[in-house]
Design a protein around this nucleic acid. Structure first.
Lengths: 213, 213
DNA sequence: AGCAAGAAATGAACGTTGTTCAAGAAGAAT
DNA sequence: ATTCTTCTTGAACAACGTTCATTTCTTGCT
């Protein structure tokens, strides 16, 4: 055996991500992986349970990289002495935007994968990675001069994440030219500005009871 | 020919939506459609270009229904004399939430379909239906006592849509139990409250220049 | 070195899928 | 009745995910 099992798995995942990123999840084919990795189809199934398993592993690596990108953006601003909450939130949103742009195939594939009905295996591994993102955002909110209790701050952080996520992904789903990138930036600017103004005034955000019919 | 071509198309679409909604897009199979509709596989391809064409048609019907649901929610509040912007936005978000709940398979499938790389056919038909939603939200914003120019109001409407969309879909993607429905409602409450507080103070929302690195 | 037992890799084979298209059936027109 | 046109059919094809009997390699022992 020329290579370690770990090394081959690694290579398979790199190949798999490239395939998915260039042609969507439909482009992830067992025979293509095998050919490009220099192994047989059977070996792919020896390393991973099935193609869904390969995709899951690719997705975990993606989420890890997104977390790193977010943390790096915060570290960068900290180094440059920027503590302004608005700029930090914009930097986080920008990091996410660039991340999605850099993964035009694999990120949509991750989203599509997580929507598939029969269902979530390893929810913990997935949500733990999301929690990391929420904590970064929560940290920014805690650093600003908002008067929020811990619980509300958590909800606000998750709301910000969901909102930015919605803006970026539905933006790129609609089109992919530069006009759309500008639209996304405008929406992010407005969202962050509105959030900061709205949160600055403090208070609670109890359920108004009108969401349900 | 016992039935009109229109009638059979209609029946095929109803069957297709049921299949997609119950088992995701993987459940949409040419032979299943043919069998349930009482026609042959070839006839399915006679009515639609391919399975993507069937899915596209199903998606258009879904978007139409979503638009109707939003308009109905607004009409209902108008009848009851409710003009408060906050309650109207919450009602819209609630309508979307219920819509997504009512389409656990077909709505995620629509989202996944629109993310597929090779690409958008008929972008106009799709975006026209989205514009209708934006106009409904824009109308609510115009009705409230915000001091927004038309352009900013449009951006705000689209931002609200994207945000609510992000909250609802990433909420249901993560889990599907009742705890998650509560979380979604909390996020929507906070988002709407923050938006109204933020927008009330007027002003512009120009690009701060920190989104891009 | 030789050898046996266990582990890992292989790719032919199977069942399903989307899609096509020659052949046939049905209808319309003369 | 006959021709022409249009629609319908389902067998056939290629491509896919997945399995598993067979082969190949590795390891431990004498």
């Amino acid at each position: 055996m020329a290579l370690d099992k770990e090394e081959i798995s690694e290579r398979v995942l790199v190949i798999a991500e490239t395939l998915i990123n260039s042609g969507g999840m439909d482009n992830l084919k067992a025979r293509t992986i095998a050919e490009q990795a220099g192994i047989s189809v059977g070996s792919v199934y020896n390393l991973f349970s099935d193609l869904d398993g390969v995709h899951r592993a690719v997705n975990m690596r993606l989420l890890d990289r997104l977390g790193v990108a977010g943390a790096a953006a915060m570290a960068d601003l900290r180094e440059r002495g920027v503590t302004d909450a608005r700029q930090r939130l914009l930097a986080l949103a920008g990091a996410y935007m660039r991340f999605v742009e850099a993964h035009p195939g694999s990120w949509p594939a991750l989203l599509a994968f997580n929507r598939r009905r029969p269902v979530r295996t390893e929810p913990d591994a997935y949500e733990a990675r999301l929690d990391l993102l929420f904590e970064i955002i929560g940290g920014v909110l805690a650093g600003g001069d908002f008067d929020l209790d811990e619980d509300t701050r958590g909800v606000a952080a998750r709301t910000l994440w969901s909102s930015v996520h919605g803006i970026v992904t539905s933006g790129y789903a609609a089109r992919s030219d530069r006009r759309q990138a500008d639209e996304i930036e405008r929406q992010i600017d407005l969202l962050v500005a509105v959030f900061i103004r709205g949160l600055e005034r403090g208070g609670t955000f109890a359920h108004a009871g009108t969401t349900r019919s």
